[in-house]
């Protein structure tokens, strides 16, 4: 039997993380579109591009172009972020919102290995990766990492709610 209050909390916490991920991924598509439209939208586009430069090299040859403008992140990062969205959407159907169990660490290691090997061998100059490989390895990491990050967020949200409730009662 699920406590109705905790069920409500779970749905609220999950909706928050899903909305944040949708907003994040939407900005990746909106930035090149706004750059294409121009005018006042160009400033919004600039802000998005600039903020993603902290997180990605933004090399044009490794990026996808939308309406003649590149996305604000490379294909590997785009794969991670869109994969994470897929994983977040799939999470309640596969694991359910009530569980706080984190999958075994080997799943995370398996998710990190393709990106790690692909990125590292390229970084040290052993070989050159392809955009297809970047998308695939990034998406694997993105999808699987959602199964670690979503329950961790739900757990922290629980802790925060309990902490605040305790403080209010004191």
């Amino acid at each position: 039997m699920i406590n109705p209050r905790s069920r409500r909390y779970n749905i609220t916490a999950y909706t928050m993380i899903l909305l944040a991920v949708v907003l994040w991924d939407t900005s990746l598509v909106v930035a090149p579109y706004f750059a294409y439209v121009g005018g006042i939208y160009q400033s919004i586009s600039d802000i998005i591009y600039f903020n993603f430069h902290f997180l990605c090299h933004q090399m044009p040859e490794r990026s996808l172009f939308i309406l003649g403008n590149k996305m604000p992140v490379c294909l590997r990062c785009a794969g991670i972020y869109f994969g994470f969205l897929i994983g977040t959407i799939a999470y309640p159907f596969i694991r359910g919102l009530e569980t706080r169990d984190i999958p075994h660490k080997w799943i995370l290691i398996i998710a990190l290995l393709p990106v790690g090997i692909d990125g590292l061998t390229q970084l040290v100059g052993l070989r050159q990766s392809t955009n297809d490989l970047r998308v695939v390895t990034g998406t694997i990491l993105g999808v699987l990492s959602a199964f670690f990050i979503v329950p961790a967020f739900l757990q922290v949200y629980d802790e925060m709610c309990n902490f605040l409730r305790k403080k209010l009662n004191d």
């Binding site: 430069h53 902290f54 997180l55 990605c56 090299h57 933004q58 490379c74 590997r76 990062c77 970084l123």
Partner: peptide, 9 residues
């Protein structure tokens, strides 16, 4: 450092 994407953080 941005060549490492978000990995450094």
């Amino acid at each position: 450092i941005h060549c490492l994407c978000c990995v450094w953080l």
